[in-house]
Amino acid sequence: MEELSFLEKLHNLQDTYGYIPEREISNLAEEADISRAKVFGVISFYSMFYTEPTGKYIVRICDSLSCYVNDSEDLVKAVQDYLEIEDGETSKDKKFSLEVVECLGHCGEGPVMMINNKTFTQLNEKKALNILKECK
């Protein structure tokens, strides 16, 4: 089949570096004969792509309706307090980044938290903090 699609390339870079470095953006731009601003426009559209390094663990907590009615906000609060960061921030030791996100597709098992690629469901504060404590 054809060569890698642009989106796949972005995923690969994101997976390789944990973010998409500037020089790779310039390379992509040149390859595709578009401006690097445009490539940045594409990258920044998607929540799972970053142009700056993030924490080692990206913690995503769903706060959409089904999780919300299952007290996701309490979970968010507990995690924020524990990590001492707000939504969108990275901890000083660069270990955790926190993102309060929209529906993760596990609405029947809320509240839900993803840490990098792993999904944890039916959480309460205690369970969630225990999981975070295990992130080394």
Binding site: S5, F6, L7, A32, S47
Partner: peptide, 20 residues
């Protein structure tokens, strides 16, 4: 793989997304 954007489920947005 999508990359975290609900709107990409809309069929024409999906096409744009696949096109990069």
């Amino acid at each position: 793989k999508g990359a975290g954007a609900y709107i990409c489920g809309e069929e024409t947005a999906l096409l744009n997304s696949i096109e990069g």
